[in-house]
Amino acid sequence: MLTTEYTGKVLAELKRTVDLIDNAEAERIVEGILQAKKVFVAGGGRSGFMAKSFVMRMMHVGLDPYVVGETVTPNLESEDIFIVGSGSGETQSLVTMTEKARSIGATVVAVTINPESTIGKLANIRIEIPAQAKSDGTSGKSIQPMGSLFEQSLLLFFDSIILRFMERKGLSSDTMYGRHANLE
């Protein structure tokens, strides 16, 4: 198969997957971000890279976002929102963080393949991305290896949250560019 044919199949998988995301729950995330004092985002592995790109865009729209685990990340408080991306919803380090965020009283958001997972059950808001788990290469949900479909869908979902936030706040790309890094 040609590379462009694979790309077409991947795009079709992404469309099928993101079309199944619950818009009402997604809107609750936007509302939670609008109401939060600070935004904390966590994820492991490739999901963590998607989380970092989401934090970067939130900074561009003027929010006060943080990647959990970075040395400049402040303490989480009850007025904050904690968003965790975890395909399995069972990654132990993320479970521990989610339990802590919940005990503090922050709004907890789980973006996961498995909303009935430990992290999903701890969350106030659950977004299910019905993708293939990285350990389930025989599900037929994806031609891609491991958790690629979830990770790509996570990035698209996070970018869509940013677009909805921009719409709600009347922001444009030009406004955001003024906050882009200038020490590159």
Results as ranks from 00 to 15, higher is better:
Arg46Asp: 08
Arg16Tyr: 12
Glu151Arg: 13
Pro74Trp: 02
Asn114Arg: 03
Leu76Cys: 11
Arg168Gln: 11
Val67His: 00
Lys121Phe: 06
Glu27Tyr: 07
Thr138Tyr: 09
Leu20Ala: 15
Gly178Val: 03
Ile143Gly: 09
Ala106His: 06
Ile104Asp: 04
Lys141Ala: 03
Lys9Met: 12
Thr118Arg: 04
Gly120Leu: 08
Glu167Gly: 14
Thr175Val: 07
Phe165Ser: 09
Ser148Phe: 13
Thr71Phe: 08
Ile81Leu: 05
Arg46Phe: 06
Leu34Cys: 14
Val67Thr: 13
Leu34Glu: 15
Ser117Asp: 04
Ser78Gly: 05
Ala110Met: 10
Arg164Ser: 13
Gly32Met: 08
Ile104Phe: 10
Tyr177Cys: 01
Ala24Met: 07
His180Thr: 06
Glu116Met: 05
Glu77Thr: 14
Val18Arg: 03
Ala36Cys: 12
Glu167Met: 12
Leu154Val: 06
Leu34Gly: 11
Ser53His: 14
Asn124Tyr: 02
Leu20Arg: 15
Ser117Arg: 01
Glu27Trp: 08
Met97Arg: 08
Arg164Ile: 12
Leu163Tyr: 14
Ile33Tyr: 00
Ala24Trp: 02
Val39Gly: 05
Lys121Cys: 03
Leu20Phe: 11
Thr138Gln: 09
Pro74Glu: 01
Val41Leu: 00
Met166Trp: 01
Ala133Pro: 04
Glu70Asn: 12
Gly89Tyr: 03
Ser172Lys: 09
Leu122His: 04
Glu116Lys: 09
Thr112Asn: 03
Ser148Arg: 07
Glu79Gln: 11
Lys9Ala: 11
Gly89Ala: 07
Glu99Ser: 13
Gly62Leu: 01
Gly147Gln: 09
Ala110Asn: 05
Pro65Lys: 07
Val68Glu: 01
Asn124Ser: 08
Gly120Pro: 05
Asp19Leu: 15
Glu5Val: 09
Val109Phe: 05
Arg57Phe: 05
Ser173Phe: 01
